[in-house]
Design a protein around this nucleic acid. Structure first.
Lengths: 121, 121
DNA sequence: GCGTGGTGACAAAAAAGTGCGTAATTTACA
DNA sequence: TGTAAATTACGCACTTTTTTGTCACCACGC
């Protein structure tokens, strides 16, 4: 993560969406407003440090809206922004693609044949 | 990357597509058959070790087709599989989404206001 | 002795987990 | 009634784990 800016947009998006959590968090937030503790309950394997870091990243990327309320006990709400909502069907599409291509994966992880053993010209 | 299998498909795809190289490699391969050295020339910053590792990953994921020819000098060709080709427009869509949401990002990285300072009930 | 497409060992760097502290209020319990 | 403890959403320092880079080496042919 040297520089946030790169030549092509794909590199930039992937800096945000790469990793286990970003897409998962987007999925959980798809259901509506969530609080920090809610998201931890949704996915118990994420550490609180990671969760804050990832949420901040999604926030600065304009995907997640963070709303902090004054007073104790603390209360912070997370929502998808309109941009974040627009991203959901795109992630869905990739998810569907993955499921549809399961047979292709099965084939690919199978035999590794040498298809055209060529003779030197 | 503990186990390759997880509950939901998104987690699985992201294990393959996460990182700088997977999507970039798919983009370069979109133009047609490429050899190992071609891909290194396309992106000089990837180390040869990373390139082999990433290509293997994409291969076992059924995205890339590897074709090795007998004889010296060695010759190995890489292509997108039909599944890989089907993935291209989906990545494109996310790339477009990213570009369209640049203004939203600009806003998000701006001020962080406290919207509703609530009084205790 | 360079190019080709790798593999493996080791080192550096990056990412992620762990545990502690913080604030004010609520609740738990003796 | 008093006090200890839990809750909430983190920040910070430290350690562990994972990822990535570097270098050397292989195979052969020109």
């Amino acid at each position: 993560m040297k520089d946030l800016v790169s030549r092509c947009p794909i590199e930039e998006v992937m800096q945000v969406l790469s990793g286990r959590w970003p897409t998962l968090l987007i999925y959980y937030l798809k259901d509506g407003t969530k609080r920090f503790a809610d998201l931890r309950r949704d996915n118990p394997t994420v550490s609180h440090r990671m969760l804050t870091l990832e949420l901040r990243k999604l926030e600065t990327a304009g995907i997640v809206q963070r709303t902090a309320f004054e007073g104790y006990p603390l209360r912070v709400e997370y929502d998808l922004t309109p941009a974040g909502l627009a991203l959901v069907p795109l992630i869905d599409a990739i998810s569907d693609w993955w499921e549809q291509n399961e047979p292709a994966r099965a084939r690919a992880s199978g035999v590794a044949e040498v298809p055209a053993p060529q003779v030197a010209s």
